[in-house]
Design a protein around this nucleic acid. Structure first.
Lengths: 344, 344
DNA sequence: TCGATTTATGCTAGCGCTATCATAAGGGCC
DNA sequence: GGCCCTTATGATAGCGCTAGCATAAATCGA
C-alpha cells in the first residue's frame, strides 16, 4: 500500500502531523477526533484522509492528561470466581475495545477486610476511570461505601441492588434458588441439602433464601445447610457434613460449581451413586460443569453478557451520558447428568 | 489522623503542591520521585514527608506523557483453562503492582491468522510498554516476528526459545513429556496413547517429542497419537479415537488438563475403570486436577512463577536495565488418582 | 587566595492532546 | 448597505509530569 518504502517512521505521528497534512489547525483535527458536529464536511473528509494516510492514532496518555481520564476500566476479582473469569473478561473487552477503553485486572484477596484496602490502593494507584465488580467481590460488605467515598464509578454484578454502587447488573438469584428447589422437589426429593456460600456474600444469601422458601412451600420437604467458602476444599467439607447426617439429603444444591465438584468428589469417595442415590446441582454454569463426570447440572449465569452490560453502563456513566436501560439477567438451570429422581 | 477535617480535597494533589509544601522546586521533587541520588538527605526527607502528608501520588498519565511510556503491560491470552489464566494474572500482578505498572488483558481469537492482526491492533491501540505472551499464543508462528517489527518488547512463556521474542521464560516440556512416559512405563504400561496439542503449537510438539522419544527408548513399548485442540470437546474426540483402536492404549497422556478431563469423561462413559484399566495423565497441574473424580495426575507447570519471571524480565527490558538471569521452570509430575499399574 | 570541581537545586521547554476564547466569513433581514 | 447571527476555524493556555541546561553554594588543591 505504501508507495514510499524508504520513508522511515521515526516516531508515532501526532495531531500536528495530521493538521499539517490536512492544512488545518490542530484544533480542527481535535474536533474531528472528538466527533464534534461543527466541522465542514469537506474539511472533515480531508482530515480523515490524512489520519488514514499517516496511520495516526491519538495518544491515550495525552488525551487522558487533558481530559483527566485514564480510559482504563478495572476489573476486581478474586480466586473464588476464577472459573468464570475468562467469560467476564471477554464480555468486558468486547465493549471496551470499540469504546476506546482498556481493561485492567486486579486480583484481590478473598478476605473481606483485606480486600477493601487492597482495592482502594489499586484504585488510587491505577487511576482507573471506573470499576466492574463481579461477585463474590461485589458482595463484600463495606466495599460499595468505600468506593463511593473514593468517588470511583463502579458497576457491580449482583443479585440485589447494593447501596453505594453507581449501578448494578442484576441477576435473579432468588428466583434461581427457587428454581433449583423446584427442580429437585419435582424429581421427588424431600430431604434437600444446601451448600451455601459465605455468610457475608449477599448473592449467596439470596440464592439460599429463594431455595429455602421454595422448600418451605412444599409440605413434607425440608432442607439442611452447610456453609462453604466458595472454594473446593470447603465444598468437600460441607458435603461431608451433610452426608454424615443421620438422615442425609438426597439432593444437594451447591452455591457454585466448584463446591458442587467437591460434593461430587465426596459422593464418589463414599460410593454414593450420582444421580441414582444423590442429585447435585451447581451454580454458575461454568465450563467446569461439562468436564466433570457425571456432567454437572447447574444454573447458568450469563457472566459474559452481564459483564458487557456492566461495562456499557459504566462507560455511559463515566462519559456522563444517560445510563442504558437496566439489565437483569435471567438465570436458567441447565440440566445435565447429576440430577435424577429421588431414590425410593 | 487529619487534624483539619474541614479541608475539602478539591482535586488530587500535584507535584506543585508537594514542592510548595516542602519549600523546594518541582524539579527536586521530581528527583525524589525518580530516585535520583543527587538530592540532599535532609531535603529528601522533607519532600517525602510532604508527599506522605498530602497523600500525593504522581499521575501516571503525566509521567507517561513525559517519558513516552504507558506503564502498562499487556497479557495476550487465548484461554482454555480459566484457572490457569487466573494464576498467570496473579503472578504478573504481584510484580507489576510494586513496580508501578498495571496489567491490561487482551483475550485473542484462537485462529492463528486472526490472532496476529488482532494483537497488533491491540498493541497500537493500547500503547502497552510490553507484552507477556503465555502458551499457546506464544507458539503462534509469525507472532514473534510481527511483534518484533512493531517494536514492542515481549516476553514469552514457552518450552523452547522463540526467535523474535526479546525474552523467553522456559519450561522443560520435553523433559516433562519424557517424565510422563517414564512414569507410565514404570507402571508397566506398554501401549501408550498421546492426546497431543495443536500441531502448530511448539510447546505441544516438545512435549510430544519428549514423550515419544522416551517410549521409543523402551523396547516393547509403543505409542499411538490423536491430535486435540486443547479444548474439552477435542479431548473427548481424541480419546474416542484412541479407545476405538483395536488395541487401545492402557495409559494416555493428554497435553493439557482440560483434554485429560475429556479422556476421563470418555472412559467413564464407556465403563473403562480409571486407573484400573486406563491410566490418564494431564498437563498444567491446574486446580482443575483436584476437582475431577478421580483426581487427575498431571504435570505441574508453575504458571504463576513463570509469569512473574516474565514480568520481571519484561520490566527490566522496558527500563533498559540488564535482564535478570534466565529462568527455567522445572516441571514435576504430581501423582493423583488417575494413574496406576497397567492392567494385566 | 582563587579558580576549578563537585554538589544541590531551580528554571523551563516540551510530551500530545483538549477546550476556552476569539476571529473570520457568509447570509438573511429591513 | 449595514447589522446581527450562524458557522467554520484558529491561536493558545493548560493537563502534571520529566529532564536538559543553568546557577548557586560548598569543597579543594596549589
Amino acid at each position: 500500500m505504501d508507495a514510499s518504502p524508504g520513508k522511515q517512521r521515526e516516531s508515532e505521528p501526532t495531531i500536528d502531523d495530521v493538521a499539517a497534512a490536512a492544512g488545518v489547525s490542530i484544533r480542527t483535527v481535535s474536533r474531528v477526533l472528538n466527533k464534534s458536529p461543527k466541522v465542514n464536511a469537506e474539511t472533515r473528509r480531508r482530515i480523515e484522509a490524512a489520519i488514514g494516510e499517516l496511520r495516526f492514532r491519538p495518544s491515550v496518555r495525552a488525551r487522558g492528561l487533558a481530559m483527566r481520564r485514564s480510559f482504563l476500566i478495572g476489573l476486581i476479582h478474586n480466586d473464588r470466581n476464577a472459573l468464570v473469569l475468562d467469560s467476564i473478561q471477554r464480555g468486558i473487552v468486547a465493549l471496551t475495545a470499540e469504546r476506546g477503553y482498556e481493561l485492567i485486572v486486579h486480583p484481590t484477596p478473598a478476605q473481606a477486610g483485606a480486600a477493601i484496602d487492597d482495592v482502594l490502593a489499586f484504585v488510587e494507584r491505577s487511576r482507573v476511570d471506573g470499576l466492574v465488580v463481579p461477585p463474590p467481590v461485589s458482595g463484600i460488605p463495606g466495599l460499595a461505601a468505600a468506593l463511593e467515598k473514593a468517588q470511583v464509578p463502579a458497576v457491580a454484578l449482583s443479585s440485589t441492588p447494593i447501596e453505594g454502587f453507581a449501578g448494578v447488573i442484576l441477576s435473579e438469584e432468588r428466583a434461581a434458588g427457587a428454581l433449583v428447589a423446584r427442580h429437585l422437589l419435582d424429581l421427588g426429593h424431600r430431604r434437600l441439602g444446601l451448600v451455601n456460600g459465605p455468610r457475608d456474600v449477599a448473592s449467596a444469601q439470596e440464592r439460599r433464601a429463594g431455595f429455602l422458601e421454595e422448600v418451605a412451600r412444599h409440605a413434607g420437604a425440608d432442607a439442611v445447610e452447610a456453609e462453604g467458602e466458595y472454594d473446593f476444599p470447603s465444598g468437600v467439607a460441607a458435603a461431608e457434613r451433610l452426608l454424615d447426617l443421620p438422615d442425609p439429603p438426597t439432593g444437594i444444591f451447591a452455591a457454585n460449581d466448584i463446591m458442587a465438584a467437591g460434593v461430587l468428589k465426596v459422593a464418589a469417595r463414599r460410593g454414593v451413586a450420582v444421580p441414582a442415590r444423590l442429585s447435585v446441582v451447581g451454580f454458575d454454569g461454568s465450563p467446569l460443569t461439562r468436564m466433570l463426570t457425571p456432567a454437572l447440572t447447574s444454573v447458568l449465569r450469563p457472566f459474559g453478557d452481564m459483564a458487557a452490560a456492566a461495562a456499557e453502563q459504566l462507560i455511559a456513566r463515566i462519559e456522563g451520558r444517560e445510563a442504558p436501560p437496566p439489565y437483569q439477567a435471567t438465570l436458567a438451570i441447565v440440566l445435565a447428568e447429576t440430577t435424577g429422581p429421588a431414590p425410593t
